[in-house]
Simulated assay, not measured.
Amino acid sequence: MRISVIIPVLDEAAGIADTLAPLQPARAAGHEIVVVDGGSSDGTPEIAARLADRVVEGPRGRAAQMNRGAELASGDLYWFLHADTRAPDGAIEALVDACSGGRRVWGFFQVRLSAPGAAFRVIGTAMTWRSRLTGIATGDQGLFASRRLFDGVGGFPSVPLMEDVALSQALRQRQLPVCLPLQLHTSARRWQEHGIVRTVLLMWRLRLAYFLGADPARLHERYYGAQP
């Protein structure tokens, strides 16, 4: 059983080494890391090249970059990891166990935000329970899917926002997700920079609009237009 860790990046030079460092034992065990750059100008690919099996350029956009990584990956299971997310000890072993015996599987990890404080702990816990109850996960929860399931739904839809939600919806029609008990350490910078309440309300508004049929391109404009 081989895991392909696929990481889309864009100008992540400040933190990409910290993301890749905990994954080096996985490489030593025969798993692979594929980094897909969307056109960084800060030297991200050069830093990543020392710590990944493949660093390739792809069309800018998280969905397109992750699909490009999946095209090049050789693993039995794809693990899509954000560049500002840190993998916990035992993550690869948990993924291997989840898809042992060639099982078709998809799912996500529990989340712990990187900032201290009760509010950030509540947000992380709420994200996990939201996904457990709805069967819909987001990219910062470390989405993973067996190759057969991922290819079976056609990969990530080519949309500029909510690609993770759309993939979850497609996969959920095939089977329910698995929530692994380990906690990913996900960056809290979005909430820190733009405010906890403002960010939570914005994301809920965008997600509701998406479920009601809003154009993802318009939601992308609203999301980035709302950030100073």
Results as ranks from 00 to 15, higher is better:
147 R>C: 13
223 Y>V: 05
39 G>K: 01
12 E>A: 05
173 Q>H: 11
41 S>V: 12
191 W>C: 07
70 A>W: 04
48 A>R: 06
124 G>M: 03
157 P>M: 10
168 S>I: 07
113 L>D: 10
58 G>I: 00
142 G>Q: 05
106 W>D: 03
188 A>L: 00
211 F>C: 09
95 L>Q: 07
49 A>G: 09
106 W>K: 07
216 P>S: 00
44 T>V: 08
78 Y>A: 09
157 P>V: 13
185 H>F: 14
182 L>Q: 13
155 G>V: 08
111 V>Q: 06
43 G>N: 09
161 L>Y: 14
189 R>Y: 13
68 R>Y: 05
57 E>Y: 12
31 H>D: 06
132 R>H: 14
69 G>A: 04
166 A>D: 11
72 L>C: 08
190 R>C: 11
204 W>C: 14
93 E>K: 04
32 E>C: 05
226 A>T: 12
13 A>W: 06
7 I>E: 02
217 A>H: 03
2 R>T: 15
10 L>H: 15
202 L>I: 00
189 R>T: 12
213 G>W: 08
53 D>E: 03
42 D>T: 02
64 A>G: 14
127 M>L: 14
141 Q>Y: 11
29 A>K: 10
160 P>R: 06
212 L>K: 04
112 R>M: 02
173 Q>I: 06
94 A>W: 12
4 S>R: 08
135 G>T: 10
30 G>D: 04
164 D>V: 07
112 R>N: 02
24 Q>W: 12
34 V>P: 01
143 L>P: 00
52 A>S: 09
148 R>W: 15
163 E>S: 10
51 L>R: 15
41 S>K: 10
26 A>V: 07
226 A>G: 08
64 A>K: 15
157 P>H: 11
196 I>P: 06
211 F>G: 10
219 L>A: 02
158 S>W: 11
175 Q>A: 02
172 R>G: 07
33 I>E: 01
132 R>G: 13
219 L>W: 09
149 L>H: 13
13 A>C: 03
75 G>C: 06
193 E>K: 11
194 H>Y: 12
30 G>C: 02
67 N>Q: 12
133 L>N: 12
18 D>L: 10
90 G>T: 09
68 R>V: 03
37 D>G: 01
95 L>V: 06
95 L>I: 08
201 L>E: 02
113 L>A: 03
54 R>A: 13
63 A>D: 06
109 F>N: 03
6 I>A: 01
60 R>D: 07
32 E>G: 00
65 Q>S: 14
188 A>D: 04
201 L>P: 00
169 Q>F: 13
176 L>W: 14
205 R>S: 08
123 I>K: 13
190 R>V: 12
186 T>N: 14
150 F>C: 01
220 H>W: 15
219 L>C: 01
1 M>W: 08
101 G>D: 05
152 G>P: 03
